[in-house]
Design a protein around this nucleic acid. Sequence first.
RNA 1: GCGCCAGUAGCUCAGCUGGAUAGAGCAACGGACUUCUAAUCCGUAGGCCGGGGGUUCGAAUCCCUCCUGGCGCACCA
Length: 552
Amino acid sequence: MIRKRLKEVLDRCFAAGVKEGIWPAEAADYTIEKPKHEGLGDFSTNLAMVAAGRVRKNPRELAGRLREMLNKECDLIDKIEIAGPGFVNFFLKNEVWQGVLPDICRRDKDYGPEAAGAGKKVLVEFVSANPTGPLSIGHGRQAVLGDAICRLLSAVGFEVSREYYYNDAGRQMRVLAGSLRARYLELSGVPCELPEDGYQGEYIYDIARDLLSEVGDSLRNSDDLAPFQKRAEQAIFKDINGTLERLGIKFDNYYNEHTLYDDGHIDDVVAKLRAQGLVYEKDGAVWFKTTNFGLEKDRVIIKSSGEPTYRLPDIAYHREKFRRGYDWLVDIFGADHIATVPDVMAGIKALGYDPDMVTVVLHQFVTLMRDGKQVKMSTRKATFVTVDELLDEVGVDVARFFFLMRKADSQLEFDLDLATRQSQENPVYYVQYAHARLTSIMKQAVENGVAAGELSEARLGLLVQPEELELLRTMAAYPGLVQKAAVDLAPHRLVFYLQELAAAFHSYYNKHRIISAEEVELSRARLWLAHGLRIVLYNGLTLIGVRAPEAM
RNA sequence: GCGCCAGUAGCUCAGCUGGAUAGAGCAACGGACUUCUAAUCCGUAGGCCGGGGGUUCGAAUCCCUCCUGGCGCACCA
């Protein structure tokens, strides 16, 4: 907000300067940012340096001209300094910062970004785990990441649809059904080996036990895998959905790969590609000429067995997403799925759609650390830790916060020792504690008869301590930060911001008293500051799906 | 061999569109509770931003190259 106001002033001066021939119009790509170090002002611009680079003039001289022009604009700016190689630093008036508080308090839960994406429809696909077993830690990261991204996009005005894509057919599911059948037979007294590459997890036994107690041994002589497959899928989806519910995640739609076959989309995609000469037969299989799109080699889309590979439905699925009329498609995949991305993009392009409308967020893996050592996980041996087990151990708030602490590109080391610590070093509690503390102060104030009074009568000009102004500056940056985090699909920035804001508050709290019977006016102003802080913390925590407790 | 991601303090990681003196948490060390919640704070220490070249007013950030780690490179998903 404030940056925007300053930018308008600066743009006006820049335009005037262009007219006078002081700097060229091409220098318009200058930026305005917050200096890294204290004492360099509230904002800073590189305008003079960018311009000087174009016309071979001394940047400090141009900075001087800029300052002269800006000196007439005094409603925001208190002081202007020229520093370093030619930065122009702005020191804004305290009133500017104090002025953000009424805005925050009045908007309350609505305080945040403007709806820049207004009306645009975005489809976010995430989790998309096939029903072959419980959600693992990696899925957990993806689920929370995807959910946070959705929340952010909604916050900036996008119309968000959350979709879970799954496949309940094919080899994987047959193996799953075979595994269940084996366990079922074993439990009903018929010795039976797991099929090759079978699912070894304990959860298969659980499903088998339920099945046995329900239908008895009536399936003992059945060679048909269908009832086993159906049973396994139902049970596993129930489990997955239970986990997602615990995490506070809801999907708008579950898209079954099978509908792509039923509705003829698979055949149609092949026909369309074939019509363009992008498909050929070799070794009994059907190949897609991905080399036409700059890729290294062609890929099989229909196996010699007649079964499509995952690529074909993936392409058809993405085409359906386009056809359903979204403005933006976001896919969230684990790093192990990277190989599919170029193939799908090639397919989309071949079918006449714009791959630039798809953004793929690839996230790296999660390693669990316990007692300073890595917890070894293997899906095959079923030694993985499930999201459910993690939630049992650390709770939803901690799990969500930890999953969001790293950018998607980084591998995430989940430190269970740190996560389970109920106090001190745990960053989740650190932020939550700030909110609880603020709540407690507000309550305390009422009990002591030092109520904040009317906002319109509060003397916010009394908030002149460096720590207070710093808090106000940070609070003012919140909407812009959320905005940027949303369009960049980077929720970790919000997590870092919240830690920063909490730290600034804790520090302030230890240095200054908010409630004071002697200085009533100051108390009132500070209580409004506390109120505003509480709003920003609450909104930020809510946006990442972490609770903002009133007491701890 | 090829592709993607990463390499920043002892450990885990931020660092947005290239900006000024490189940031946080944890761990370590030394302090602060008769006071609004000490799940807190203050202070100290800790760095060839993997190496080497380049681009420019200016590089952790961009380009090239090499090294290390992770993940891919199926007629699995």
